[in-house]
Design a protein around this nucleic acid. Structure first.
Length: 573
RNA sequence: GGUUGGGUAGCUCAGCCGGUAGAGCAUCUGCCUUUUAAGCAGAGGGUCCCGGGUUCGAAUCCCGGCCCAAUCACCA
């Protein structure tokens, strides 16, 4: 424990000794926010003369009989003026001199009652008449200072920001804003879909057969049924079953899981919104998508233009539409629409793209597209008509052989959404699944499984349907100008903290070896935080360290005998 | 997985040309009744990521490992 933590625990004790509950149970009445005061306070009107506000103490300047603190609530910071003789009008000044000055700390959550005024240097400030501890912080907060909009000692270490998101939210208003925007984006999307009468539904996350996308799944096990289940990689096949069931339009905000690489665009769990509408096709879906995203953008910013990195992106509908072949022609000058596999492979090589013999026609086209076109599409663009090999759930194109009715939305060089005219021909669907099985046999770990139950459903007849998947994390990244997916997911996946892991391992082993719980707690405090640290320790030294710590810190534990310590160490082997 | 940069006080970082470990903020003691990165005077605080090696001597040099970031590759 650091000196600061020890100090704070002492303060905690002091408060309790003096009948001040550091964690009171009762509600604290709040009648105003920091933002409201700063926006609406008017010296002439003399308003806000009886405010009650709560928040975290973020800084403190003690000047003898007077102090200034910054109080932060969910809307921002406001300065509070604490004057000894206002707070303690009588003889007893201990509330100010002792309680506040000695035992309140930066990071504590407190309540303030008082009246608003403007200081000599012109800052809107609450003059406190009452101050109350609402929750004592026994761990010090990282200190961030600010002057003229310039931030000093900013809390920017990405690892700490993601692992301890609560600190990020306290210390970085921008981060808080991103997550508020994320929720607004989701709410606007839901409003838009509900206004059209579409039905929000919930489908299984645990699936006996995973499907609806090409990706490797997470596997788990159900004990009672004694079967493996998969965390869904998509919910497409379930939503389509609902279309078969006669629901005309269904959607779901779906947390999906893919057991693949992680980078700034990929988190193992992520959110998609999938939508299926009966009697529509992918042309119709393009209009819906551009209208929906335009609506969301306007709801969020009041304009369709958003700054993303160096670029200004305009989401105003309609968006540009290009077929995949035309897009490649536009960016390379090469028309690949009539090429066979060999010609495609040669073309890819001349474009400097690495290819190998296992790649089929569809994969080659996809590589050429991904390499030459995708990064160059900054403004929202629909790319239409994909090769059939890449899209086992999309309907064959109404007029172009070898292609399917599919589009992707590319914005800022990245895929944002994916949609098809859904394949509803059960014979064709079975054939496509069988082709996937062949790929799987050849070793493609992402090939789709054959879902007999789904086939059965569409054999009963599924109306022609348009389907869409849109990445909520990606959309939020775009609309909040966030560099990494970790900036738009509150708790992104991280490698487990090894020190914590090792400590847990140690505690488990010590328990197994029969070490009493109260003594297990002592081990980390004498510097033994992992099994490794116990490996070469002599029983005599361990015994001394343990008993010494007990005595020094007056823990009043019964010291183990040397024999007992020897027995513990034996038990660890 | 490759390459590059990084890991030092509670926080942000300096020190790296081997020679007793530093600054600012935070903390502690004292002063200060409108300050604002408050100020002044004093004090405490470190497994320099871990493990080896070279050396009389390693935060610093070498080797191995762990973790983080950027970027590329792979993967949607």
């Amino acid at each position: 424990m650091s000196d600061q933590e020890i100090e704070r625990r002492k303060s905690l004790e002091f408060l309790i000794q003096n009948n001040i509950n550091p964690y009171p149970a009762e509600a604290y009445p709040v009648n105003v926010t920091a933002e409201e005061i700063k926006k609406n306070y008017d010296e002439q009107k003399n308003n806000y003369q009886d405010v009650s506000i709560a928040g975290r103490m973020m800084s403190r300047r003690i000047m003898g009989k007077v102090s200034f603190i910054e109080l932060q609530d969910h809307t921002g910071k406001i300065q509070v003026y604490i004057k000894r003789d206002t707070l303690c009008p009588g003889e007893d000044k201990s509330l100010y001199n002792i309680i506040f000055k000695k035992h309140f700390d930066i990071g504590d959550i407190i309540g303030i009652k008082g009246f608003v005024f403007i200081t000599q240097s012109g800052e809107i400030t609450i003059h406190a008449t009452e101050i109350k501890m609402l929750a004592k912080a026994i761990r010090p907060l990282p200190i961030v200072k600010e002057k003229d909009g310039k931030v000093f000692d900013a809390f920017t270490d990405p690892e700490q920001r993601y692992r301890q998101r609560y600190l990020d939210l306290i210390l970085n208003p921008k981060s808080r804003d991103v997550f508020i925007k994320r929720t607004k984006i989701v709410n606007s999307m839901r409003d838009f879909l509900n206004s059209k009468g579409y039905l929000e539904v919930e489908t299984p996350i645990l699936q006996p057969i995973y499907g609806g996308a090409s990706a490797r799944p997470f596997v788990t096990h159900h004990n009672t049924l004694d079967i493996d289940l998969y965390l869904r990689i998509a919910n497409e096949l379930y939503l389509k079953r609902l279309i078969v069931g006669g629901l005309p339009a269904v959607y779901e905000f779906s947390k999906d899981f893919r057991n693949e690489g992680m980078d700034r665009f990929h988190n193992p769990e992520f959110t998609q919104m999938e939508l299926y509408v009966a009697y529509k096709d992918y042309i119709w879906m393009m209009e819906l998508v551009e209208q929906m995203v335009e609506y969301i953008t306007v709801q969020l910013y009041g304009t369709t233009k958003v700054k993303v990195g160096e670029n200004e992106i305009d989401f105003k509908a309609p968006w540009k539409r290009l077929t995949m072949y035309d897009a490649i022609k536009e960016f390379t000058g090469i028309d690949i629409s009539n090429m066979n596999e060999e010609e495609l492979r040669k073309t890819a090589k001349t474009l400097g793209i690495e290819v190998d013999e296992t790649m089929g026609k569809g994969k080659l086209i996809d590589e050429i597209f991904g390499e030459t076109v995708e990064p160059n599409l900054i403004q929202p663009t629909f790319i239409m008509d994909y090769p059939v090999e890449m899209s086992p759930l999309a309907k064959k194109h109404r007029s172009k052989p070898g292609l399917v009715e599919r589009f992707e939305v590319i914005v800022n060089g990245k895929e944002l959404a994916n949609a098809y005219s859904e394949l509803n021909d059960p014979i064709d669907q079975r054939k496509r699944f069988e082709e996937q099985l062949l790929l799987a046999k050849r070793g493609d770990k992402e090939a789709m499984m054959l879902d007999e139950d789904f086939l059965q459903a569409i054999e009963y007849g599924m109306p022609p349907t348009a389907g869409l998947g849109i990445g909520i994390d990606r959309l939020t990244m775009l609309l909040t100008d966030s560099h990494s997916i970790q900036d738009v997911i509150l708790f992104p996946q991280m490698k487990p903290d090894r020190t914590v892991f090792e400590l847990n391992e140690l505690v488990d082993k010590l328990q197994e070896a029969g070490v009493p719980t109260e003594w297990i707690k002592v081990f980390p405090q004498i510097g033994i935080k992992s099994l490794k640290a116990l490996k070469n320790i002599k029983p005599g030294k361990l015994h001394q360290d343990l008993c010494g710590f007990n005595k020094k810190n007056k823990l009043n534990l019964t010291n183990p005998s040397l024999e007992e310590v020897e027995k513990w160490l034996e038990g660890l082997k």
